[in-house]
Design a protein around this nucleic acid. Structure first.
Length: 599
RNA sequence: GGAGCUGUCGUUCAGCGGUUUAGGACACGUGCCUGUCACGCACGAGAUCGAGGGUUCGAAUCCCUUCAGCUCCGCCA
């Protein structure tokens, strides 16, 4: 901050509050800021003056300057003041080691109230204890706290490093429309009525996807955007209806090129902002590996607890559930917990009900007791052979616990994935200071939507299938993998991208499989398909969730902590009270009539 | 759409059928105080107990409904 100190010298002040140290002693300074605290000792008044850089103590002594002392009596918390004074070294017994400016203070010779303040609704120092609702209502004040100053400045730094990095890698920053076209695939759109085109609507972009790609068709080679995206879906701790992506697209690239570039960017962010190196390249897992080993397509690799497949052991088991599952094409999978003596019967019951609510029929546990005997609700059904195989395959020791889920592959994996995360918290396996990045690739191209009875893109409809299994495109689309990749940090998906289709016939074939009929495809994506008719280079890209990334870098528990004016879970901005009613005339101009709202 | 948790002075907590006139701490106001930095001391003001309905002689407290916030499921290509 000190290197910018000069920048903050203005007509009002000589510099910042938080940077004044011993070197300044004897100098006259003029400072501006908010009153953080006033301590009135009758004949002596202390004020903690605050700006974003920190706090400095101002002393008002009537024997030194009566006039400023008198004004200081009127001062209250959060008043904005300007003061002139001499920087004085403190006597050794009055030094405050807790603040950077604690070795000095400013003896005031002038004081001016620039703006008064009502008593603030909450104290800035104990922000963590204040209800979030109150903080969001008075966000103007919440944003003054060191926490919010730090969070938003951190985000700004990440954006700045990103711009520099991408620009120096040949990227062009190009804006694309916010008033864009609605597309039925994907998330729900926010719509904007068009006054000049009655009964027609724009949609706010869910991402600049198609514009990015068209800019590749146009020969820009590499473009990026720090793009605001809008999705009208329900909110979560890490999801807001509008959020920001570092969104980029590159021409003539393979997946490895995009991954390498992003690794470079993340590494740069760590060196410049976190101040530490990060191991490159990141670990890579195929989607299938991630699902079968960790039960998640965004596994947290800060702890191990891998999932084992023990189907082989139970092929002809007496335990009917296990055998039947296997015979029906399912799997038997488990997680082994070592030294699990601490798990009570209640803990195990909790895990069972967790498994059930996650979609499994149930969960079997087996404990190894002191005599190396296997304890379990089903122990009497387990053959000696099965017991021995379990002990051998899983190298079981005294006090080990295994948690078994047998079901369809995806169900048993994802249920154990949820339990894996639960165990890590319970066992305290997570090192909060660690950052574990990884790539997930080789996703399936499609998934089958039971409700709509059709295939859906796992990533999006413009994702390039893996040419190695193109043959299944017609016969068994679920077997086709895609050239797409997600980047995961500590169990959170922070970005995803793909190599895109650059072949019109293939693109139309994909739409056919998605049962987007050609007529509708033309309606929604016609501009894009016809753009593809004029020379489409191979290209690919990725988007990183900026807010999520910054949230994780700052070790924060919600995305709202890195957004200046976020919305509540019901998508309301508490400060501006938005959304709100609009004037009848505004609606008239837009040819919109309100329908009475009913439950 | 569903599940769970929360809602009491400005803030944060206590009170969980009856001497409660709803209590403490911080903040706030007034007075005193020349070395504090979580300043101290004294006095004071401040609450339709989220809202509505019910049970009861009596409800902040029990029941129902509802609203709001948060977490999660569904949803988020």
């Amino acid at each position: 901050m000190t290197e910018f100190d000069n920048v903050f010298k203005t007509g009002y002040r000589t510099g910042l509050c938080g940077v004044i140290i011993r070197d300044y002693s004897g100098k006259e300074v003029v400072l501006c800021g908010w009153v953080s605290k006033r301590r009135d000792h009758g004949k002596l008044i202390f004020i903690d003056l605050r700006d974003f850089s920190g706090i400095v103590q101002i002393v008002f002594d009537p024997s030194f300057n009566m006039e400023s002392y008198e004004i200081a009596k009127e001062i209250r918390s959060e008043y904005v003041i300007q003061t002139r004074g001499i920087v004085k070294e403190r006597t050794s017994d009055t030094i405050n080691k807790d603040i950077r400016t604690g070795e000095i203070e400013v003896l005031a010779s002038e004081l001016k109230i620039l703006s008064k303040s009502k008593t603030p609704p909450f104290l800035l120092e104990n922000r963590e204890e204040i209800d979030e609702l109150t903080r969001l209502k008075y966000r103007n004040i919440d944003l003054r706290t060191v926490e919010m100053q730090r969070n938003l400045r951190l985000k700004s730094s990440v954006m700045n490093v990103t711009r520099n990095y991408l620009t120096s890698n040949g990227f062009v920053e190009i804006e694309t429309p916010i008033l864009a076209k609605s597309t039925p695939e994907g998330a729900r759109d926010f719509l904007v009525p068009s006054r000049l085109n009655p009964n027609k609507f724009y949609a706010l972009p869910q991402s600049p996807q198609l514009f990015k790609q068209i800019l590749m068709f146009s020969g820009f080679d590499r473009i990026f955007q720090i793009a605001r995206c809008f999705r009208d879906e329900d909110l979560r701790a890490d999801r807001q209806p509008e959020f920001t992506q570092i969104d980029l697209e590159m021409t003539f690239v393979k997946q490895e090129d995009v991954m390498g570039l992003i690794e470079g960017l993340i590494s740069e962010i760590f060196i410049k902002i976190i101040g530490s190196e990060i191991n490159l390249p990141f670990e890579k897992l195929t989607w299938l590996e991630a699902m079968s080993l960790y039960g998640s397509d965004k596994p947290d690799l800060r702890f191990d607890l891998k999932i084992n497949d023990i189907s082989e052991i139970f092929k002809s088991s007496e335990v009917k559930i296990l055998k039947d599952t296997i015979n029906n094409g399912g799997v038997v999978k488990c997680i082994k917990v070592e030294n699990a003596g601490m798990f009570s019967r209640k803990d195990l019951d909790d895990i069972v009900s967790m498994a059930k609510s996650a979609g499994a029929g149930g969960l079997l546990w087996i404990k190894v007791d002191e005599n190396c005997e296997l304890q379990s609700p089903v122990s009497k059904f387990l053959s000696e052979n099965e017991k021995n195989n379990l002990i051998r395959v899983l190298s079981l020791k005294v006090n080990d616990l295994i948690l078994i889920v047998s079901d369809k592959f995806t169900t048993s994996c994802s249920v154990l994935g949820i339990i894996r995360n639960h165990l890590a918290v319970k066992l305290g396996l997570i090192n909060k200071d660690e950052y574990k990045f990884l790539w997930i690739y080789d996703f399936p191209l499609f998934e089958f939507d039971e409700k709509e009875n059709r295939y859906k893109s796992v990533h999006h409809a413009f994702t390039m299938p893996d040419e190695n299994n193109l043959e299944y495109l017609k016969s068994d689309p679920l077997k086709v993998n895609s050239l797409s990749y997600d980047i995961v940090l500590n169990g959170t998906e922070i970005g995803g991208g793909s190599i895109r289709i650059n072949n019109l016939e293939l693109q139309e074939q994909i739409f056919k499989i998605l049962k987007v009929d050609l007529e509708r495809a033309k309606d929604n994506f016609g501009f894009f398909l016809s753009a593809m008719e004029y020379g489409t280079p191979p290209h690919g890209g990725i988007a990183l969730g900026l807010d999520r990334l910054v949230m994780l870098l700052g070790k924060l528990k919600s995305i709202r902590e890195v957004i200046a004016f976020p919305k509540t879970q019901s998508a309301i901005d508490m400060m501006t009270e938005t959304p709100s009613n609009v004037d009848e005339n505004q609606l008239k101009e837009l040819y919109i009539k309100l329908v009475k709202f009913e439950e």
